[in-house]
Nucleic acid binder design. Structure first.
Lengths: 345, 345
DNA sequence: AATAAATTTGACAGCGCTGTCATTTGTGTT
DNA sequence: AACACAAATGACAGCGCTGTCAAATTTATT
């Protein structure tokens, strides 16, 4: 429908620039991508034309022709959790510096949505995929394996990574955190958990193992409410706990938001922390050090995970993108602050 | 270099699927995009072939051929600030439901990076651009205007929007917040600010206006440290304030992180809040209601901004994408909690 | 001055898909 | 049985760019 006449309406193309600058299209292409292979004179003419037309290259065409997308796919379960925002930031920093564009998807903790995101990313021909977690649908796993792009699974550890695996053992962290409370002399240790995040579930399994090993029962000590974890939710769960059961001596909360909520509710109820109840969080968010009492927590190295993931991806893309399998365990750290204390004896 | 022989190595294409399913490529294309225009029998054969080959369409080719990208560009200054994470979440929800893919860039508060992001997004032929702020480089503005895609500027208000403008008057909010403290009887009201965010600067200008109108001097009452705003920074700034000057009666902090840090430092220093110092934050982050004392703050409707921006964009893409200019003022709300109180008289 | 070598520019084809239109097949009507 | 009409399928060209190689130009070498 469009004739030559409506150049004014059409999106500008390389050819338009070439005509205006009186050079061939391919020269324009080169001037834009490898400026020093074009003589200064032409380059200047081309720059002027580009500027005059406000020309922006069509990336779809460029990608199709070069079969290089210069982009990286990242999938996180949510953007709401600061943990992932910080991790993303670290990824972004490394990739942007290296000239890669980052495409972020969030799966809302759904494997089905994750698979959809993987399809879209592979369809974009991203040059690497960095994904939170080690659980995927069988099809998603197959797609990733077939894709031949480096795949980096983060935040958890697995014996059978698709490619590269960078993270920590969530279950071991849960175990050690519980052990930390047991070693303080506590016996009735509760576990507080919000919605069904697989990593929180792994921490719960570690908690169970530690309790069993110490011959402690945890029946009636699991406080769960299937909502997005938040300060408000922690507060609400603590209300229920205080109402319905004998107050536990210690609470291990599956993340810091829940922990802070529980902490505040305890204050409100006159349950002194840590004298009456010890509270331990997870993730070591910034506010943990600043609440009062300050919140003990388990620090995980999300920025380091992001940075290492990005660097590893870049290495693999540059060097040998073979099917290396490798695991990096970045560990965790229990930070004891004021909210946890020895059991009264 | 690749002959027909290495179909096993090449990325699978529509043609591969077509051959395997013994249909024409175009039928495969249709089966994938408009399944109900293809007979059940063929559809099934095609689905089987797609599955067997783990075929993923090349989006670059699709976009080039159809000149539709089904994607939306979003630019935020940072992912670190929860405000923008929540806003993004709201955008994502609306767009994904409508079948659009969201491409997020962060500008790190740099107009230059913003221009670069705009170029890349336009190069991707996104069908709308949603961008935080109203300040852009002249070239960025020109690119956006020439692009013919709906542009939505958010979080601030301007008399001269490129297209659509959804937000609140940051300066008026700063003015009203300051007025709120003045009306409580405070005279020495300090302003605490971190790095050079334009929106925080606008709030500062509102503060200045309110102070001047009330004939209050604010010399030596500006506490500033050019670092990323955080709880730790608020705490550090409060330390300086307490050390170097007569303690103000009230502090208006340019965001809640600074406010919480200041609040905690006051506790530590034995400066009772609000009896000695009133503290007012901005943004009303979740923890504000849960700190102790709870933090007074100015709530802004970031989720609503995101939702409305997405819906408006979708409307414009569907209907008349003409150069409508329109502004939506979503306002703000001062939430008085425990951290602000009347001046002793 | 004649040749080789390096630099700069251009012609051509094709990346993998989809819009458009033509053709084939199936259904209903008289 | 003959026709019109709708539904399903296919052929063709082209989206806008870049890889590859060839041609034209400049510079260095003998």
């Amino acid at each position: 429908m469009l004739g030559e006449a409506d150049i004014t309406k059409r999106r500008k193309t390389l050819d338009d620039v070439a005509k205006l600058a009186k050079v061939s299209p391919i020269t324009v292409s080169r001037a834009l991508r490898k400026p020093d292979t074009v003589s200064p004179e032409l380059r200047q003419r081309i720059d002027a034309a580009v500027h005059k037309l406000a020309y922006v290259p069509n990336l779809a065409a460029s990608r199709l022709a070069s079969s290089r997308s210069h982009s990286i796919g990242v999938i996180v379960p949510t953007l709401y959790n600061v943990i992932f925002a910080e991790y993303l930031l670290a990824l972004h920093e490394v990739f942007l510096e290296s000239g890669y564009q980052v495409i972020v998807f969030n799966s809302h903790y759904s494997l089905h949505e994750e698979e959809k995101a993987i399809r879209t990313l592979l369809g974009q021909r991203v040059e690497a995929i960095i994904i939170v977690g080690i659980d995927h649908t069988p099809m998603a796993r197959r797609l990733l394996q077939k894709s031949k792009v480096p795949v980096i699974e983060t935040f958890e550890l697995t014996d059978d990574p698709i490619n590269i695996n960078i993270g920590l053992s969530q279950s071991q962290a849960g175990y050690d955190a519980t052990k930390f409370l047991i070693d303080l002399g506590h016996r009735r240790i509760g576990f507080v958990i919000g919605n069904l995040d697989v990593r929180a579930a792994a921490r719960l399994s570690g908690y169970r193992r530690a309790m069993e090993e110490a011959n402690l029962s945890y029946t009636n000590l699991l406080a769960h409410k299937a909502e997005r974890s938040s300060i408000a939710l922690g507060s609400a769960i603590m209300s229920d706990v205080a109402e319905n059961s004998k107050i536990p001596e210690a609470l291990f909360c599956s993340d810091d938001n829940l922990a802070l909520g529980a902490l505040m509710k305890c204050r409100q109820l006159g349950l002194h922390v840590p004298e009456v109840v010890s509270i331990l969080g997870f993730h070591d968010l910034e506010f943990a050090a600043y609440s009062s009492p300050s919140l003990s927590s388990v620090a995980i190295h999300r920025r380091e995970i992001g940075k290492l993931a990005a660097e590893t991806a870049i290495n693999m893309m540059a060097g040998n993108p073979s099917t290396i399998k490798r695991q990096f365990d970045l560990g965790y750290e229990i930070i004891a602050r004021q909210s946890t204390g020895k059991a009264p004896r």
